[in-house]
Design a binder for these strands. Sequence first.
DNA 1: TCCATAATTCCATTAGTATGGAACTATGGA
DNA 2: TCCATAGTTCCATACTAATGGAATTATGGA
Lengths: 124, 124
Amino acid sequence: MKPEGAAWSAMKRKQESEETTRFADMFAAMGAEPRLRIMRLLLSAHPEGMIVGDISSELEIPSSTLSHHLDKLKNEDLVNVRREGTCLWYTASCDSLQELLGFLYAECCTRNKAIEPEKIVCCR
Amino acid sequence: MKPEGAAWSAMKRKQESEETTRFADMFAAMGAEPRLRIMRLLLSAHPEGMIVGDISSELEIPSSTLSHHLDKLKNEDLVNVRREGTCLWYTASCDSLQELLGFLYAECCTRNKAIEPEKIVCCR
DNA sequence: TCCATAATTCCATTAGTATGGAACTATGGA
DNA sequence: TCCATAGTTCCATACTAATGGAATTATGGA
């Protein structure tokens, strides 16, 4: 199939729109102060992660409220969970954060060249 | 003043918490499908930007709804506006996007080394 | 001054999100 | 089996955000 034509561009539009929905949902998950605090805490505890009780006491968030927030982050794959006995260990999901960062980077620096890469990263 | 002690760490905590609030608000602004579509469109029209009427017809969003979204993006400094006659030209704000990208990058790659910089950027 | 165009603001409606106590479920140890 | 600990789910309440038609404001041209 030729990489052009009406069918092709319709497919591309659809793909782009699904992408927009997906990343908007991820941004929304990070777009609440308690959840962004959770993400920062989990990143600082990376790669071991933390158990719910410790997150709760560290951030002073009641466990049921916290559970709702963790659920939302989990739905967007921003965190991963593993069980160890009675404890659940939550970790930040590098794969998803990488995708999100990659998306923003592509939009700003690659696709539209609105921002110079050097302004974000200093890589020698 | 010594860069340690209770007062210093209290200040640092406060600063970190304000930062969290600020970036959470920016994520929230990008965390709605219509607004993320607006940002992508403005980035693709960068640096000229677009007038409201054209954004409205391109994205098929009624002007009053669009106006609300633009207002929210403007409140988080994610877009800039300039008037030319009766038209308002909206542009993506590179400064803010750069800050946002820088924040995410710092959290994931620098501060916590959860993600390898090379996985985001390919800089030669 | 009057009119047309551009965009915002007003307003009401609807929908979705956040919060946290209480009840429940899961797991492992005594 | 019974208990303690860890977390989730249920549920009700309160808030906040999204939407879009109608009215309003801003700007410039005839």
